[in-house]
Design a protein around this nucleic acid. Structure first.
Length: 122
DNA sequence: CGATTGACGTACG
DNA sequence: TCGTACGCCAATC
C-alpha cells in the first residue's frame, strides 16, 4: 500500500503538490493550504515552502498563492516586483493596489476541489 | 548546537 | 473596529 500512498516526505511536498494543482486563473491562500495539510496554524510553513519552491525543478505557481487578505505579499520575493501581478493579470485576474479584486471569487479551496477524503488513502 | 527568521493566521486587548 | 502579541515548524546564521 505504500506504493499508493504518496507518503509525502513532509509538509513541503504537500504544499508543492497542492500548489501545482491550483487551476489556471485561480488563487488560494496560505492558510487554506495549511489547513488542507492538517496544520492550520502552520501557515508560515507554506510560505517557507514557496521560498524553497524556487529551488525545485517543478514549476510551482507560487504567484497563485496569496495571503488571507488576497494581498500579493509574496510578490516581493519574485524575480521582478511586478512578476506576480503580471502573471495573475495574465490569467484573467484583476490586481488593484497589490490586492486581488474579487479575491473570494477566484479563490480556490483545495479542501473542496481536491476532495480531502481522497487524500486519506492516496 | 542555540537563537533568529520567515511569502501567515488567529487570539486577545 | 483596529492594533498588537503569540503560535506553527523548518531552515538558516
Amino acid at each position: 500500500m505504500k506504493a499508493l500512498k504518496k507518503k509525502d516526505d513532509g509538509f513541503f511536498s504537500k504544499v508543492y503538490m497542492v500548489t501545482r494543482l491550483i487551476p489556471y486563473g485561480k488563487v488560494t491562500s496560505y492558510g487554506a493550504i495549511a489547513r488542507f495539510l492538517g496544520t492550520a496554524g502552520s501557515s508560515r510553513m507554506v510560505g517557507w515552502a514557496m521560498n524553497n519552491a524556487h529551488s525545485l525543478e517543478d514549476y510551482i505557481p507560487a504567484h497563485r498563492v496569496v495571503n488571507r487578505n488576497g494581498m500579493l505579499t509574496g510578490k516581493l520575493h519574485f524575480p521582478g516586483t511586478e512578476i506576480m501581478q503580471q502573471l495573475l493579470e495574465n490569467e484573467g485576474l484583476t490586481i488593484e493596489n497589490d490586492v486581488i479584486d474579487d479575491f473570494e471569487k477566484f479563490f480556490w479551496d483545495p479542501n473542496i476541489e481536491l476532495c480531502p477524503d481522497d487524500t486519506s488513502d492516496i
